[in-house]
Structure formats: structure tokens, C-alpha cells
Design a protein around this nucleic acid. Structure first.
Length: 490
RNA sequence: CGGGGUAUAGCGUAGUUUGGUUAUCGCGCCUGGUUUGGGACCAGGAGAUCGUAGGUUCAAAUCCUGCUACCCCGACCA
């Protein structure tokens, strides 16, 4: 009663905040823009991380770790890229605290660093400074490295998981001897991200490339995957950059090719972050709480015993323990909640809030009839399954839930994908229900700016999935080569 | 950085307009008992320098001044 969520239809933003907190994923830290990822949220991240890590390793990447702090002089080398990023950087200037007369800590002015250290907003600079030492010959290439870590970007406005000052991510940094190979790498990664998003997280995405008006400074091509949330706003959930020779030139990283000639190295960088968790929430969850895809749910099955007295509990307990063993053997993440102080009803609501895909009830009835009551979170349906082939039917059900929530999201994404050829119509769509609007654009910055001012929508990407088609810009009427995706976004 | 809001027990809150005993209520927590198939019940109990610093007053959660923090809405962005 007291613990219900605000309805999505009432206030989507409020619903989002409440679900993050009430499901136990994360909470506010008391430090502006920083959050605490709680055990449930962190174990979700760990599972996601493990899956993506496997995919990256399978495709030939290795993990490394570079320092959190970057000397300012190194940081400054790549001018285009640092120009914008530097606006949200925290800088370490001292290394020591001392106590004053009131016994409060103050900065020891004597400890001022000769060179200030920037807390990494991303690691291109320190990595490319290092790559200079690692690369001499074409035989040293390619270098395919990835790093799991945290970065800091001082944001003006923050939201749990979607935008926080500090976030966890992976950043890949690769070096190649040819342009083609680097482009291929950036595209390969985009496909890995797409696969991960769709197959593991159940989030359908649109692949595309950022228009020149909105790409990462220092990159030649910025590939991205964009997903549409339930409220019709889009979320960029992954990016992969083809960086050309920008970083190798800035850090003077050259290699000797087969013909004995020096060439600058070609590179890529790419990343996904804890923002994915925000996307996961906003893609699948409902007014009762989270709905997590079985492949990443920290708890895939929760078993709740229902009993009247000690003797009956012992019998039920016995049966549950056997079932738990069967599931554990299959590496299913199962939790047996036999806490006596909470009633079954309380637990039902709690695990629904936490988005556990399957709940199993076991009481006297179930023991007698060798069956279990099964509740699936995604459709909120109850069913009875026989104990005999429980293992296979549960594995099948988990698979079914995974597919079902993806399909539901895919249907919605397709409904949200709308072509528009008149600005009137365009404004209506954006204002009424949002979504991805496919429209012609004249390629100018000015048009993007005007449309944003008037509708809040921006160009998310130039999508791959659609044929090139000539037309007229929806805003200016000038000629256009292709449709781009407009949307309001997070 | 601009606009708005909030700050009272672990959480959510009443009280602030119009100053006045011992600061309200619910959830949670502790003890004992009864319960347990969709957020159980009874009895008892613990828990608060009312965000912070100062001021006005016989008297301040309440009035005045400064400060701080966080949240929400925009501009910057994964």
C-alpha cells in the first residue's frame, strides 16, 4: 500500500527515480551528482560486465588498466578533443591535508603539485602517450585493448544511472596500420554492442552514425546505437569512434610499414557505461517495478515457502532445498527466501519491485501434488508446473521471458519509428508521443539548432537500416540526400 | 549558470501563516505472543541537539539575516 510507485503515465521522471531507489539498485549519495550503487545494482552491473567482457575477449581484445589521473600537459595535446571535454573536468592540485586550530582538515598549501593532475573524463590522452612507446613497426599492430574503470565528468544536470558525474564503463582503444582496418574495427564493435544490447539486455536498438554536427571531438566518424524508451525519448546506449589519425598525429605515434616507410597509426575508441542500466529500466519496467531480462537478472528465480507451522515448514523446506540444488547445478541464479519475519504477501511485492523474472511458491499443496506455483514477472501470469520436469520447463520459461520482453520492446520501437514529410506533422509527433522521426534534413547546423529550439528534438543519428532516398529538408525545404532520425533524448 | 522546491527519528510526514507546557502521525526497528496462499495482528518499548551559524524575544521548529546541502525544470553531454 505505502510502497507503490508513481504511475508512468502520471510522471515518468518521478517513476524512474522511485523505481531505482525502491528496487534497491542505487541511491543518492549526498554528494551532488554522485550516486551509490547498492548491492543489487552492482551485481546487475557485474553480470552485464561479465557478458560483454566475454564478447570483447572472444573478438580478440585484452583488458588493461591505466591511471585515474592524467598530467595536464598530456591531457592538453589533442586540442580538438580536449577543448570540449575540459569544460567538465575535476583537477587534483594538492596531495595533503593538515589540521587547523579548530581541528578541521584544511589543504596543506605546501603540498601543491608542480603539475596538476586531471581526473580522467576518458583515457585517450594517457593511452596514446603510452602507445607511442609501444608502437614502432607494423608488426606491433593492431593493438586491441579495453579497460574497465570509472571516469569523471562534471555534469550540469544529473540523473541516476543516465547521467552522473562519476560513472563506470569500459573504454576500448585500438591502434591499426590501415584506415580500412580501423573502420572495420569500429563497425565490428558497434555490432558487438548491438548484439549485447538486443540479445542480452533485450533492448532493441537502431544503428547509425552521428551527423557531423554532433560527433565526438577528435573523431572522424562516430557510430552509435540508439534505443527508444517507453516515454518516446531516445537514449544513446553505446558509441564507437573511428578516430582517423587524429590521436596518432597529436601524440606523434608512427610505425614503419612493410616498405620501410613511416606512417601515422589509425585508431578507434568505444564505450558503454552504467547508463545501460538506465536504459534497461526504462525499456522493460512497469508500474509494479523493475522487469529484468533473465540473462542479467541477479536473481533469476526466487522461491518462497508458505506454511502454517513448524512441522509443515520442515517438509516444505526439505522440498525447496532439493529444488534449489537442481537449479544451482544448472547455474541458475536462485534465491530461497525463508526469512520468517516477513509474510509471503510482503515478499511477493518486494520481488516484483526488484524485477525477479520468476517466482516460485511452495506450500502444502505443492508438496502433496508434486508441483509448484510459478509466477512470471513480465506478464504477471500464474501457472502450475509439475515437479517431474521442472528443470527443463523452468529453463524454457526463462528463455521465453527473455524473448517476450525483447519482442515487446521491439514492437514498441517499430511503432515509434515514424516517417514525416511536413514540419507541422513532425511537431505534432514529437509533442504528442515522441519516438524516432525519420525526416529529411539539409545538413546544416542552423536547421538542427532551430528545430531543437522549437521542438526539443535533435538528430540522433543517420540510420543504417534505411535506403538512401532524396528529398527536401523538413525545415528549410532545401535538398537532402537521406532521412535522419530526430527525437527528444535523455 | 538561471528558475523552482525541500531540509523535523532509519524512511515518509504534521506543526511554521497567527511564537507559548513533554514536537504529531504512519512505516520501519526492539521484546513477547498469535499469524503466514498478494504488503498480518495484539500488547509493550526504544529512537529528534527540528540542515547550519547568528539575531529578535521572558520564550523560537515557528519571526529576521547569512550560509550550506540535496532534489526537480532548462542550457552542456555517455
Amino acid at each position: 500500500m505505502t510502497n507503490q510507485l508513481t504511475k508512468r503515465s502520471q510522471d515518468y521522471s518521478k517513476w524512474y527515480n522511485e523505481i531505482v531507489i525502491k528496487s534497491g539498485l542505487a541511491e543518492f549519495s549526498g554528494i551532488r551528482g554522485f550516486m551509490i550503487i547498492k548491492p543489487y545494482g552492482y551485481s546487475l552491473w557485474e553480470i552485464m560486465k561479465e557478458k560483454l567482457d566475454q564478447m570483447l575477449k572472444k573478438s580478440g581484445h585484452e583488458n588493461v588498466y591505466f591511471p585515474l589521473l592524467i598530467p595536464k600537459s598530456i591531457f592538453s595535446k589533442e586540442k580538438k578533443h580536449t577543448k570540449i571535454l575540459s569544460e567538465g573536468c575535476a583537477v587534483v592540485t594538492h596531495y595533503k591535508l593538515i589540521k587547523n586550530k579548530k581541528k578541521e582538515f584544511i589543504i596543506d598549501k605546501e603540498s601543491r603539485l608542480e603539475e596538476e593532475l586531471v581526473i580522467r573524463p576518458t583515457s585517450e590522452s594517457i593511452i596514446w602517450k603510452t602507445y607511442k612507446n609501444w608502437i614502432q613497426s607494423y608488426r606491433d599492430l593492431p593493438i586491441l585493448l579495453n579497460q574497465w574503470g570509472n571516469v569523471l565528468r562534471w555534469e550540469m544536470r544529473t540523473r541516476l544511472f543516465l547521467r552522473t558525474n562519476e560513472f563506470l564503463w569500459q573504454e576500448g582503444h585500438t591502434a591499426h596500420s590501415t584506415q580500412e582496418e580501423a573502420i572495420e574495427e569500429a563497425e565490428k564493435i558497434l555490432n558487438i554492442y548491438t548484439n549485447f544490447s538486443e540479445k542480452i539486455l533485450g533492448i532493441p536498438v537502431l544503428q547509425g552514425i552521428k551527423p557531423h554536427t554532433d560527433k565526438f571531438y577528435g573523431s572522424e566518424k562516430t557510430y552509435c546505437i540508439e534505443a527508444i524508451m517507453q516515454d518516446g525519448k531516445s537514449l544513446q546506449i553505446g558509441t564507437s569512434h573511428f578516430l582517423g589519425q587524429n590521436f596518432s598525429k597529436a601524440f606523434d605515434v608512427q610505425f614503419t610499414n612493410k616498405n620501410g616507410k613511416k606512417e601515422y597509426v589509425w585508431s578507434t575508441s568505444w564505450g558503454v557505461s552504467t547508463r545501460l542500466i538506465g536504459g534497461l529500466i526504462m525499456t522493460h519496467s512497469d508500474d509494479k517495478g523493475l522487469i529484468l531480462p533473465p540473462k542479467v537478472a541477479p536473481i533469476q528465480i526466487v522461491i518462497i515457502p508458505i506454511y502454517q507451522n513448524k512441522e509443515k515448514f520442515d517438509i516444505i523446506d526439505d522440498m525447496v532445498k532439493k529444488i534449489v540444488k537442481i537449479f544451482e547445478k544448472e547455474k541458475i541464479r536462485v534465491k530461497y527466501d525463508n526469512i520468517k519475519t516477513l509474510t509471503p504477501g510482503w515478499k511477493f511485492h518486494e520481488y516484483e519491485m526488484k524485477g525477479v523474472p520468476i517466482r516460485i511458491n511452495i506450500g502444502e499443496d505443492e508438496v502433496e501434488n508434486k508441483k509448484v506455483e510459478v509466477f512470471r514477472r513480465d506478464t504477471r501470469e500464474k501457472m502450475y508446473l509439475s515437479w517431474i520436469d521442472l528443470k527443463s520447463s523452468i529453463i524454457e520459461l526463462l528463455d521465453n521471458i527473455q524473448k517476450n520482453i525483447y519482442k515487446k520492446a521491439l514492437d514498441r520501437t517499430q511503432k515509434f519509428l515514424i516517417k514525416s514529410d511536413s514540419y507541422q506533422d513532425f511537431k505534432k509527433i514529437i509533442n504528442n508521443h515522441g519516438g524516432f522521426v525519420l525526416a529529411h534534413w539539409d545538413g546544416t547546423k542552423n536547421t538542427v539548432k532551430k528545430i531543437q529550439e522549437e521542438t526539443e528534438a535533435t538528430i540522433r543519428c543517420i540510420p543504417f537500416a534505411f535506403e538512401r532516398e532524396k528529398g527536401k529538408c523538413i525545415y528549410s525545404g532545401k535538398p537532402s540526400f537521406q532521412r535522419v532520425i530526430f527525437s527528444k533524448s535523455y
